[in-house]
Design a protein around this nucleic acid. Structure first.
Length: 278
DNA sequence: GTCTATGTTTGCGG
DNA sequence: TCCGCAAACATAGA
């Protein structure tokens, strides 16, 4: 669930939490598979004593720079959340990794489905080198996007979900961007005409920026859905035009929004605004 | 009991 | 090589 705007919101809140300069005094790992690399013993040893130096984001990865030069990368996958709590707060069921700091606070990785992963590495490139563009970066130009799109025959939706093509988009923002750009999710990438490509480029950036402004999309009751630090909810769900709105009227034309499966993912679109042909 | 889920990776077959 | 598909991860909620 956490996509670029949600991860960006978490990173912003980490920055606001005055954790920089704090030293990690203890590392508890309650579910070993959450630690992707290195081996849990080494992970615990290497992380203990480290001081937090910076928080950034790349794609859907939270990147925590440590004073030693090492990096702690966190991927929340579908249901990961971070909590900052006093050390004496009892540990709850889904808290799988707990970092304790020298100010008696803790950073806790919480994840009911246990799909998320933590990586402790010397070079972040080891993990993120295969990621595609940052869509809000200057390097993501219309010209470059256009040139690369034409090289793929794939359906546009699975291509936009491919993190090695463009990093940070997930099911929600892809559906919203395709709606914004009037494009059917099954169109093949190399069939898009220049005006359509320009519309898609603009739409991707627009829906992501709005998602960030709204501090992310928090669907449902928040339990297994996105929330930023300490369960803070976003409000971008109020701005969604098609995602999970099947059966309701398209906000632009009133046609009933449909849901289909594309590449094993539920896909929401307006059959009138987003026509398949041409 | 059934079905679904917003992410990513891997392996298979065409 | 490209591409679509299915499964795996593991659990909660409807």
């Amino acid at each position: 669930m956490p996509e670029l705007p949600e991860v960006q919101t978490v990173v912003a809140e980490l920055q606001e939490a005055r954790l920089l300069g704090r030293r990690i005094t203890d590392v508890k790992i309650r579910w070993q598979k959450i630690v992707a690399t290195p081996q849990v013993d080494k992970f615990r040893r290497d992380l203990t004593g480290q001081t937090l130096a910076d928080f950034t984001r790349r794609g859907k990865f939270i990147m925590i720079k440590l004073q030693s030069g090492k990096w702690l990368l966190i991927h929340l996958r579908m249901t990961g959340q971070l909590l900052i709590l006093p050390a004496n707060r009892p540990v709850t069921k889904h808290e799988h990794v707990i970092l304790r700091f020298d100010d008696r606070r803790t950073l806790r990785y919480h994840d009911p489905r246990k799909f998320g992963r933590l990586y402790l590495v010397d070079e972040p490139e080891q993990i993120i080198s295969n990621l595609g563009w940052e869509p809000l970066d200057r390097a993501f130009t219309l010209k470059a996007f256009s040139a690369k799109l034409s090289r793929f025959k794939r359906q546009i939706k699975p291509l936009l979900l491919d993190q090695t093509f463009i990093a940070g988009l997930g099911n929600i923002y892809v559906d919203e961007a395709l709606f914004e750009a009037y494009l059917h999710p099954l169109r093949s990438a190399n069939s898009l005409k220049p005006p359509e490509i320009a519309a898609l480029h603009r739409a991707i950036r627009r829906v992501l920026r709005k998602g960030i402004q709204n501090r992310g999309t928090s669907l449902g009751n928040g339990k297994a859905n996105f929330a930023s630090i300490n369960r803070r909810r976003g409000r971008n769900q109020e701005s969604l035009k098609v995602f999970q709105r099947q059966g309701q009227a398209c906000p632009r034309c009133g046609t009933v929004i449909r849901r289909i499966a594309v590449g094993q993912r539920s896909t929401h679109f307006c059959p009138h605004c987003q026509r398949q042909n041409r």
